[in-house]
Design a protein around this nucleic acid. Structure first.
Lengths: 193, 193, 193, 193
DNA sequence: GATGAATGAGAATTCATTCAT
DNA sequence: GATGAATGAATTCTCATTCAT
């Protein structure tokens, strides 16, 4: 595989995201993707070993975008609850923008049969939050009797599923309320009494 | 479509669950399914409009099994936290047994593009938990300042993802700890003080 | 085969004409026809040996309708040219009304591989016109140096193809002019000097 | 679609004509055609969008062959009636040789629902005959009070149907008589007194 | 006669992948 | 590296026909 920032790798990846988001995974052929990307049929295989390797690549792209965004926004924030608030906000925003890509990534679960890839993709995100939690514990912002690793995963799951229920399942309600409810839930679950 | 309890509908459905669990979705052809079910090729299309309509049907089957099991096990339990503990336990058990089917159902998200179907399938499960929460509120077992509908969905989501992370993503760690952490998390988030 | 005027035979035949005219021959299944006819799948085979036997039956139906109509209208007419004029008029009318059925019958040429059936169907029409020509010859209305059999076929062909070019190929022009041109052509071809 | 004179397009077309003539349209599968053509299954779809698009292509091929032949044979002929005689003769010859292909083309009427394609295919043939008629009019060989366009179509139709009745419907009689009758019919209809 | 669920052979079409240029 | 015509295996789905009721 070539450099990620090589022109054609990204052209193909972005074309794939675009076409698959629009037409769905099984309705999209390599031909559709290369047409959209403006490269030749065979060029695809210079950058991706096979079609199914697209999905982890897309997921990775989305996840690294997410993490970058969240790290960026929480850069200046030092209070734990401020960070959580930002995390919630950014997750909702990204879910709104990329809901088709997210659905696509879910389907990757069934196609890329090994979940290890998934874990690898999420690892940097988990690690970052674990550090944040560690710091919050040591500053006494949250209770200390919790398993940092599990809690990091729980938090990300709570926030992501709330956002997905809102934007993907299109449940009724108002965003602000939903975000607030999510925040309160986490606050009750983590803060010292 | 015929009655759900018609012999052939179920024969095909169970055969599909079996074969797809084993071989994965795209590796499974209609031919594989009908062979396993012992019916003719064309018979499949008498009961399912197309291959992709199998997935919601499988999901529905799994969900109704889950709900039945959980209702059964919580039948004698009256305390809210006892029910939650059972919910966690049963979800982990079912996830262990049916992880291939669950993965398959996720892929349905991308194939059956409308989330409405998914919502419809989950509705009875949500309703049941909403009632349980309502009762817990009125008994003063949990705080009253929460959105019942939203919380029901969140609980199910949190528990399911924990189980999936454990059994499907095969994260390291010990089940009991994982279940306990999930329980504590919910308890802190919902119980009074 | 049952009586032609048996209720179900005709129900199926008319349903077939309707559905095939609308959807085209290869897009129409027996299922479509029996649904439209309001009879059971198996009932079709009580009246038609197979699907391909439908087309000659439809053609026969159309031809007998045509002949009946023309005979009727020419009943009171005694002059040969009056009869030709009526023949032209009725052929144009019927072509307008039944153009889809006519196209369908043409395709029957390829499906019912033996043309004998076609000849059998047209035979009564040819015979009738041969008699008319015979009488015209003996009355001195047309030249006598012509082969009655070939001429009957030529006339029918000239009139039918003119009507088909007008209504099916949708060539431009005005009906009256087209009919007049057809009449003049025949008149020049057949009349004395 | 590639160039008509591309090797594979023609290989497939000629193979299709061969196989379909022999086995009939519905008895012929794409597999039969590509086997005969010596190309891969998928290659067919590189040149024809679908099976039914074969028929207009075959018709076009036959028509251009016909026109070429007739133009060739009438090259040296200058008298109008000589040309008509050649037209009749060649049409009969070609009908004899290609009757299976002709039957196939008729079925195209029902399959390719739009008549426009048919008109387009015949256009050069019509145009050529229109010019011939025009010239005959100006030379005073035929009457001038006729619609050139309409008459061109009618002549082609009359001659083709006569040939088809003879070779395809296998009517009894002798070819020479049939051709002569057709010629006389046209002669009486068109020539100046 | 009438029914309609079941059949299963068969076909068209798709599409990931290759490879000579 | 890039191309894109060619490949051909694999698969879904259709539908005429049957037959037990």
């Amino acid at each position: 595989m070539r450099e990620k920032n090589d022109g054609k790798y990204n052209k193909i990846l972005q074309a794939a995201i675009g076409v698959i988001s629009e037409k769905g995974l099984d309705r999209t052929s390599i031909t559709d993707i290369v047409k959209q990307a403006g490269v030749a049929q065979g060029t695809f295989y210079l950058y991706f070993p096979s079609k199914k390797d697209l999905i982890p690549a897309i997921a990775e792209d989305l996840l690294s975008l997410t993490l970058e965004k969240i790290k960026n926004e929480t850069n200046q924030k030092h209070g734990f609850w401020e960070i959580v608030q930002t995390l919630i906000h950014e997750t909702f925003e990204l879910t709104k923008s990329y809901k088709d890509v997210i659905v696509l990534c879910y389907s990757g679960l069934a196609i890329v049969h090994s979940m290890e890839k998934w874990e690898t993709i999420y690892t940097p995100y988990y690690s970052w939050l674990e550090k944040v939690l560690q710091s919050a514990v040591s500053k006494g912002e949250i209770i200390s009797s919790l398993d940092i690793n599990w809690t990091a995963r729980l938090i990300i799951n709570v926030v992501e599923s709330a956002a997905e229920r809102f934007y993907i399942a299109e449940e009724e309600g108002d965003v602000t309320a939903c975000k607030k409810e999510t925040f309160s839930f986490l606050q009750r679950a983590l803060s010292k009494n």
